[in-house]
Design a binder for these strands. Structure first.
Lengths: 337, 337
DNA sequence: CTGTTAGCGCTTTCAA
DNA sequence: TTGAAAGCGCTAACAG
């Protein structure tokens, strides 16, 4: 068998409790004893059994993340931020990938358990009222990233303002006929929220403030997918009155529009201006004008908040709103005079 | 406190052991008893404590993955494949992201522990002889993805053949001056291996077989990064005798060449043909000719092999070689006559 | 088929 | 400041 705390205690000539105290950095141990124990530990090359530690202490030293489509660039970037912080604290980083509605419910139901994890981060999936209550009942500290948790801790951006900024920029370039592509409204993964919807709201507000009526045929929705957006983009670009500019609620969808334009032999930005959202890595490569949100940083911040909660479960932080930024690249240009 | 197995036993009027048997699906329980226990479980809304189960059984129901740069599209795709299988088996999926040499060693040293995980997948990082021995000593079943583990279980592709296929295709188009861009040879993360190097070997073999000498100025290396490849690409494309075609050892690097060509106002494929490797998602978008390797599937296969090992630790599988495929898109064309 | 029970390795009282 | 010892909740071996 593996060496246990008993072996160490024996070798050091102390009690198990003392070894445990040394292990956990208690200040209640005399330097001499500590020294003796530490020597025994290194002589025996002893490593405490993590499961046994968890079992006895009730902590798991693990943090879970529930995220939709972990392959999406925006999600990956956030995961990376979380992983960085979690690792720094020597916690395990457990990932749950969600690609269906069933899986979403299953995760939200089964993952929040004190005997499983010490904390939970949820990305881009807004729990229902019942799910939120369930998480709360589980007693697991919990942070939401990319969403707003009214009575909990969350980090996100002002999607409405982002949508407005994007639209205002297109307006400032002289465009009047501005179309919008956003996520499918009945996305089963996002029961009562999508950031896409808020960005659309910003779009609508901006147009209204500019005295431009929102045209039904200019506002389209589809699954968050490049190829779906490509089809929608083609439809928009083939409208009798072609939009001068398109605001896509994500870079992924904006890239679909790039393909649509290519399909129709139209040139961006000469024939149509295009702006995306997120500023994922490929956006720069493609010269896509977009609204940048701090993806990596949202993960870092979210994880930091979570550890705050783990250490101080009572003191819940308010919603954190991260800044967005307009990044102008080559996919937008002024409307011809 | 939470309800325990004792409460259930009491309520069902049976012993703890019987409840445990029901929990673990033992066939040694009479239908009537099972029924009674199950009713007690659901009446009490009992969930077994996972930590306690792990502690008593010695299993952790967790699988760890150590991967470099989890944000790279190729890595993400593999992670997704692994996650899918791991989740299906109701195991926890623990991710360790490696971005430095120190972290690499730390992970390879600390993660393989029976009290932590039941199995380990390593992606694109070849353990040294000592590290391999250490993993073996830990007793944790282990699978390597994207590499060849001589005396262990691994899944990969024939990188040499892939490199040959890519180069042969360029040759078949009539190109003779073919350059190569690959990973930095002293990559601290990949101590004694990079797939890039094998692809280069395929490139060299193909050229030699075609009776073409490999030109030193046509073979370049740099960190696996788009911007680095862009700089290298510019150098290649500004050579007095410009290559007719470039084989990049990864799509990421190929995209750097796309930027380089753009920088120099050169057109792909008219001025230079370009072929990549991997067929990551963006390759299709960019119309990049490339060598496709089954990334998602490598993750799935690797995880399946791992579970084979977990269930049958003795019966180690041989190296699995997945097929690659030439995907012709618009970045290559025949050399002018 | 089922009840009883001895631990699993550690943390954490409780005394000393 | 330390040692002794009582569990943590479960599995698995053993007895019946």
């Amino acid at each position: 068998m593996s060496t246990t705390i008993r072996d160490v205690a024996q070798r050091a000539g102390v009690g198990q409790g003392t070894v445990s105290r040394v292990l956990n950095g208690s200040s209640q141990v005399s330097p001499a004893t500590r020294e003796r124990v530490e020597r025994a530990i290194s002589e025996l090359n002893y490593r405490p059994n993590l499961i046994a530690q968890s079992f006895a202490s009730g902590r798991t030293d693990a943090v879970a993340v529930i995220a939709p489509f972990i392959t999406r660039p925006s999600v990956v970037e956030r995961l990376r931020g979380i992983e960085r912080v979690v690792t720094l604290r020597d916690y395990q980083f457990i990932v749950y990938n969600v690609e269906t509605a069933e899986r979403r419910s299953a995760c939200l139901r089964d993952v929040p358990r004190r005997d499983r994890i010490d904390g939970l981060v949820v990305i881009s999936l807004i729990p229902t009222e019942a799910e939120r209550a369930h998480i709360h009942d589980s007693g697991v500290p919990y942070v939401l990233i990319d969403g707003h948790e009214p009575s909990g801790t969350s980090v996100g951006i002002d999607d409405i303002a982002g949508g407005r900024t994007a639209t205002d920029y297109l307006l400032s370039l002289g465009h009047r006929r501005i179309a919008f592509i956003g996520d499918f409204l009945d996305d089963p993964l996002s029961v009562n929220f999508t950031s896409s919807r808020l960005r659309e709201q910003g779009y609508r507000t901006a147009l209204e403030q500019a005295g431009i009526a929102v045209r039904r045929d200019y506002v389209r929705h589809g699954r968050h997918d490049r190829e779906v957006a490509r089809i929608i983009g083609r439809e928009l670009l083939q409208l009798p009155e072609r939009p001068q500019a398109i605001f896509a609620a994500s870079d992924t969808q904006a890239l679909g529009v790039v393909l649509a334009a290519r399909d129709l032999q139209l040139t961006i930005p000469d024939d149509v201006s295009l702006i995306g959202f997120d500023d994922v890595e490929i956006a720069e490569f493609c010269g896509l004008t977009t609204i940048r949100q701090p993806l990596l940083h949202s993960g870092i911040r979210g994880a930091e908040l979570l550890f705050g909660l783990i250490e101080q479960p009572t003191c819940s932080q308010p919603h954190q709103c991260l800044p967005v930024e307009l990044i102008v690249r080559g996919s937008t240009r002024a409307a011809p005079a």
